[in-house]
Computed example of a mutant assay.
Amino acid sequence: MNAAERLGAASKFLLQSPPGEINDVLNDVRNIISDDESLQEGVLPALREYNLAQFITADVPGHNHHSIISAAARVVKADQEEGENIDRFWDPRSRTSFRFDHLSLETSEPEPYEPDAESEPFRSALETSTLSYLGAHYHGGVASVFPAPQSTTRFFIQIVANKYNPSNFWSGRWRSEYILDLEEKQLKGKIQVNVHYYEQGNVQLSTTHDADLPLPPMITPSNTSSASKVLALIEAEEGKYQASLSDAYAEMGEKTFKGLRRALPMTRSKLDWDKVLGYKLGAELTSGRGGFGAS
């Protein structure tokens, strides 16, 4: 396998990293590449793709909150090609743009960033309602609301919540994104859940749920109080999905996982563990007597 093939394999491993474990995967693939400089340069596109897709969060310089790193948060300068690797993002909540290092996950070079004046009132109202919903349902979660480029009636509502528990060998991430189109009267969403259990094994859950919710007629761009009604729709949809996940877990525990193992051993009868211990003790005593007599 040549160097390019090794970098390609390393990039695929990174893109499949479970929540919160990409640094562990990166350290492992260092053994494949054996060249830190080439590794950092070669896997940077994969790291960027991973961070954007996974809604990695970042400290907003000069502010005491986090913002989501995503495609909707990217800042494209006038002299920049659309296909270029973009390392600058913005946080609408603080009206700040910043550079983001996809390897270290650190932010730098903050600059003021003014949002579109026409769409900002409704976006800000959406943000307020989203943060209220976040505080009620997602402990330690992060949410960002972005306006769609060159539109005053389309918005991206993004939510991410991470839970890492390496001491107990599990990690998980909830991601949800909703595209609100006030002109088309539509709210389209996607919920993605990834959970990894790795105590004496390797079990992963990866599930996606799509939602297409029609908006009531009273939700209009000029009515900022409509924002709370949008979040009420999201709350109802996510509540139903969480309930369905709980039902699925219960069914797996009662049916699926039980079907993966025998209820009884090959003898079709339960083991008598007291007898098993007796057999073992008897064998050891017999072995001990035989050894003593032979000497």
Results as ranks from 00 to 15, higher is better:
A3S: 11
E5I: 09
E5N: 11
A9I: 13
A10Q: 06
S11V: 10
K12Q: 14
F13V: 07
I22L: 03
D24T: 04
V25R: 00
V29Y: 01
V29M: 04
V29Q: 06
V29E: 04
R30L: 10
I33K: 09
S34A: 13
D36R: 10
L39F: 02
L39S: 13
L39D: 08
E41M: 03
V43A: 06
P45W: 03
L47T: 02
N51T: 13
Q54P: 00
Q54V: 06
T57W: 07
T57C: 12
A58Y: 08
P61I: 01
G62I: 07
H63N: 12
I68S: 06
I68M: 06
I68C: 03
I69A: 09
S70V: 10
S70P: 05
A72S: 14
E81F: 09
G83K: 10
I86F: 01
D91I: 00
P92A: 05
R93E: 14
R93Y: 09
S97A: 08
F100K: 04
S104P: 04
Y113G: 02
P115K: 02
P115C: 10
E118W: 00
S119G: 13
S119Q: 04
S119M: 02
S119V: 01
R123A: 04
S124P: 01
L126R: 00
E127H: 07
T128W: 00
T128F: 00
T130W: 01
L131M: 07
G135N: 13
A136Q: 14
H137S: 13
A143W: 03
F146Y: 15
P147M: 03
S151Y: 05
T152I: 07
F156K: 00
I157H: 00
I157G: 01
V160I: 05
A161S: 15
A161K: 15
N162Y: 03
N165F: 08
N168I: 09
W170E: 09
G172M: 09
Y178G: 08
I179D: 07
E183Y: 05
E183I: 01
Q186N: 14
L187E: 08
I191R: 08
I191E: 14
V193C: 08
V195N: 07
E199F: 04
G201A: 12
Q204S: 12
L205H: 02
S206D: 10
H209E: 14
D210Q: 10
D212N: 15
D212E: 15
P214A: 11
P216V: 14
P216T: 14
P217H: 03
P217D: 14
M218W: 01
I219T: 06
S222Q: 15
T224I: 10
T224A: 02
S225A: 13
S225N: 11
A227V: 00
K229L: 13
A236M: 04
E237V: 03
A243H: 04
S246P: 00
D247M: 11
A250S: 14
E251K: 15
F257D: 01
R262T: 10
R268H: 12
R268N: 15
K270Y: 11
L271Q: 08
D274S: 13
K275V: 12
K275P: 00
V276E: 07
L277P: 00
Y279R: 04
L281P: 01
L281I: 05
L281Q: 15
A283G: 10
E284Y: 07
E284K: 06
E284S: 11
S287A: 15
S287I: 03
R289C: 11
R289Y: 14
G293W: 04
A294T: 08
S295F: 10
